[in-house]
């Protein structure tokens, strides 16, 4: 079996643990410490931000335009609208500035 296969299996087990773990572990406690809860609340934004931020270092005009449009559309639209608007601007801009 390839490394990729084992990554997928381990990733699947890790994911299932998150989906069943909250029920098995956290629901046993009557109260979650507010600081722990604040930390848990911060997890998604913190992780996802690290996947975007370093890309800014190499971003050219087309990439910046796409990210700015994505951010502006986010004020009104949902995830799909944001994504489509950002992608459209990126593809269009790359035709001109490569």
């Amino acid at each position: 079996m390839s490394t990729t296969f084992w990554i997928i299996i381990a990733g699947a087990i890790a994911t299932y643990l998150t989906r069943i773990g909250g029920h098995l572990v956290i629901s046993r406690f009557d109260n979650i410490h507010p600081r722990v809860e604040a930390g848990l609340n911060a997890v998604p934004a913190a992780v996802l931000t690290t996947l975007v931020a370093p890309e800014l270092l190499n971003a050219g005009p087309a990439e910046w335009a796409a990210l700015v449009v994505t951010a502006v559309v986010s004020l009104r639209g949902g995830l799909m609208a944001m994504f489509l608007a950002g992608a459209a601007v990126l593809i269009l801009a790359r035709q001109f500035v490569g």
Binding site: A10, T15, L17, T18, V25, I26, L40, V47
Partner: peptide, 24 residues
């Protein structure tokens, strides 16, 4: 590879809260 698996776990970690909520 272990870091890829850990990252998948980290991104999915929010499910712990869903799990605790839906368990009831």
């Amino acid at each position: 590879p272990w870091l890829i698996v850990l990252s998948i776990f980290a991104v999915n970690f929010r499910h712990v809260l869903y799990s605790a909520g839906i368990g009831r």
